[in-house]
Amino acid sequence: MASAPSPFVVGLTGGIGSGKSAVAERFAARGAAVVDTDAIAHALTGPGGAAMAAIGAAFGSGVVRADGALDRPAMRRLAFADPAARQRLEAILHPLIRAESDRQAKTTADHPYVLLVVPLLVESGTYRERCQRILVVDCPEAVQIARVMARNGLAEAEVRAILAAQASRAERLAAADDVIVNDGALEALEPRIDALDRDYRRLAAALAGDNRGRLHGTC
């Protein structure tokens, strides 16, 4: 018997402050299954998280809070000061995030499609093979900086350092199949999200039909 067919997956990405979470919430309200790799990373690095033993062994107690969770500001400073440290952290986290996101995506049979939210989708270079479409949430860099400063209380230089470590706006747009421009009120995005939701449902139904045909041919 062949395995169950894979779901239709839309990879959602965008730079920090672009509004990925707000867009994902609106797709979820329309019935999409949202698998958020940032939320998975937070769980892995929370108190007792599955990644914390390896992180503590790799970086020492200076990046571990008293409750056993990752000290994010300390880890952020270390990672941005030392690219090799960031690579070691990614080598610990990325396989765990991928395994958990794959597990969650396979439990979405009641949803028309999966929205896989990956902040560093373009940078990773490995998610493209897992997604039928890439959706980029885009806005000008000045808007990103203002949003992150207001939301996180970071200085402009800190936000710019984060942006410099991410793919450029042009690189993300070059990888996109679909784009949502989020440079104003969120309410203005509703028609665009409605249209994309219809497109993804149609494409997901077509993929499901193809998968059923293959299963019938191999069982």
Score class of each variant (00 low, 15 high):
Arg147Asn: 04
Tyr127Pro: 00
Ala167Cys: 14
Val137Thr: 05
Pro191Ala: 03
Ile193Met: 10
Ala185Met: 10
Ala81Arg: 14
Leu93Asp: 03
Val34Asn: 01
Ser124Ile: 03
Asn211Ala: 15
Val179Tyr: 04
Ser3Ala: 15
Ser168Tyr: 11
Gly49Tyr: 08
Ser6Ile: 00
Ala24Asp: 00
Asp36Cys: 08
Thr108Arg: 10
Arg103His: 11
Leu207Ser: 02
Arg172Glu: 00
Ser21Arg: 01
Ile145Leu: 07
Arg202Cys: 13
Ala105Asn: 06
Glu190Pro: 02
Pro7Met: 02
Ala170Gln: 14
Leu163His: 06
Glu187His: 12
Ala33His: 01
Ala53Glu: 15
Cys219Ala: 15
Arg72Glu: 10
Thr45Ser: 14
Leu196Ile: 09
Gly184His: 13
Leu115Asn: 03
Pro5Lys: 02
Asp199Gly: 00
Gln104Arg: 13
Val64Leu: 04
Ala51Leu: 11
Arg201Asp: 02
Arg77Glu: 13
Ala167Val: 09
Gly68Ala: 06
Phe27Val: 04
Val35Ser: 01
Ala43Met: 12
Glu141Ser: 07
Thr37Ile: 06
Gly11Glu: 00
Thr45Gly: 13
Leu196Gly: 02
Leu96Ser: 09
Leu203Asp: 10
Val114Glu: 03
Arg160Pro: 07
Thr37Ala: 09
Ala32Cys: 07
Arg88Ser: 12
Gln166Ile: 01
Glu90Lys: 08
Met1Ala: 14
Arg172Tyr: 04
Ile162Leu: 09
Leu96Arg: 13
Ala157Tyr: 08
His42Val: 08
Glu141Asn: 02
Leu189Val: 03
Ala206Asn: 04
Thr37Val: 03
Pro191Val: 07
Glu141Val: 14
Arg26Ile: 08
Arg212Phe: 05
Pro95Gln: 11
Phe8Asn: 05
Arg160Lys: 12
Gly48Tyr: 09
Asp110Trp: 05
Leu215Thr: 11
Ala84Arg: 14
Ala69Leu: 07
Thr126Met: 01
Leu215Pro: 09
Val114Thr: 02
Arg212Ser: 12
Pro83Asp: 11
Pro47Glu: 06
Ala81Trp: 04
Ala51Gln: 12
Arg214Ala: 15
